[in-house]
Design a binder for these strands. Structure first.
Lengths: 152, 152
DNA sequence: CTTGTAATTGAAAACATATTTCATTTACAG
DNA sequence: CTGTAAATGAAATATGTTTTCAATTACAAG
C-alpha cells in the first residue's frame, strides 16, 4: 500500500520543508482515514488531540501536501473541497460513498480511446480529465448503515 | 437545438414560478454564453444591462434553474461553481477549455462497462458519475489566443 | 381593467470559508 | 549549544453564500 506518514516525513524534509508536530498531526489524521475530509473536519480531528493548533496551519499544511502531490481532491461530495491521502501515486480515480464519504481507488481508466475521439471531433488539445463514481458502499447499503463517519 | 430562453419561461411557469425581468435577464445571460460562468460573472453580465439587480437574486435564480435541471455544473474550472445552460437534456458530459472556459458537450459516455466492473469489484451500488475533460480549444491553441472571454 | 395576495425582490446583516499579516516560537544545520 | 530561516497562532481581512425582512411586483380572479 501507499505512503506511510513516516515516508512522507522524509519526503517533506527532502523538499526543504520541516517536520513539525502540527504537520505530523495533520498527516496522521488524513492518513488513518478512509473518507475524504474537508479542511474543517481535518482541523476538528487534529484539534481533538492537539488543542491549540490553528486552522491556518491546517490550511497551510494542506497546501504543501497538495503541492507535493500527496493529496487527492474529491468533487462529488458536497463542497468540492474534500481531501484525501493519495494512495496509488500513479494515475487513478475514485469511487466515493454518498453515505459515509469512504473512498476506493481504481486505476483502470478506460478513457484513452474516448479522449482521442473527442480530440479529433472538437479540435481541443486535451490535457486532463476528471472522473469520479458516486454510490453506496456495502456498509451504507445496509438497513441501519454504520457509516465510517457522518459526512456533513 | 436545445432549450431557448422562451421555452424555459414556459417551463418556469408550469412549475409555479413567476417569470420576472430579473430571471429573464439571468436566463438570457447564461443562454447566450458558450463558457461556464461563476455566480459573480453572471451577476456582472446581468447588472451591466440591468443595474439595480441584486446578487442575491442571481443566486436564487441559479438555485431554481438548477432545481429544474436546466443548469450544468462545471468542476474543472477553478472554483467548482461554474454554471452552464444545459444543452442536451439527456445524459452528457463536458469538454472544458482551460483558456477561455468554453464548453463543448458530448454524449457518448463509455463508462457502462467500467461501472459494472467497479460495482462487482467494490460492492458499491453506483448511482452516478462525474466526467469532464479539460484542454485547450482551437482558438486558445493559437499563438495569440482570442478567448471568448477572460475567465476569472 | 382593477384588486388581492402570494411570490419575488434588494439592502443589510449574518454566516461560512479562506487568506494575509505579523510578532512569537521552533526545527534543525552547523 | 546557538543562530536563523521556517513555521506557528491570533487577529484582521477578504471572499463567497445565505438569511432576514420590509417593500415591490406578477398574475389569477373578479
Amino acid at each position: 500500500m501507499g505512503l506511510t506518514p513516516y515516508k512522507i516525513a522524509g519526503l517533506l524534509k527532502q523538499r526543504g520543508y520541516r517536520m513539525t508536530l502540527q504537520r505530523r498531526a495533520v498527516l496522521d489524521a488524513i492518513a488513518r482515514t478512509e473518507e475524504y475530509l474537508s479542511p474543517a473536519s481535518i482541523y476538528e480531528k487534529v484539534a481533538r488531540k492537539n488543542p491549540g493548533i490553528g486552522l491556518v496551519t491546517v490550511y497551510r499544511t494542506l497546501e504543501i501536501l497538495a503541492d507535493l502531490g500527496l493529496l487527492c481532491k474529491v468533487h462529488t461530495g458536497g463542497n468540492c473541497r474534500g481531501y484525501l491521502m493519495s494512495r496509488p501515486s500513479e494515475h487513478h480515480h475514485h469511487v466515493v460513498c454518498s453515505g459515509c464519504g469512504r473512498v476506493v481507488d481504481f486505476t483502470d481508466c478506460v478513457l484513452d480511446e474516448l479522449e482521442k475521439k473527442l480530440s479529433r471531433g472538437t479540435g481541443f488539445k486535451l490535457e486532463n480529465h476528471l472522473l469520479e463514481f458516486v454510490g453506496r458502499c456495502p456498509d451504507c447499503q445496509k438497513p441501519s448503515p454504520v457509516p465510517v463517519a457522518a459526512q456533513q
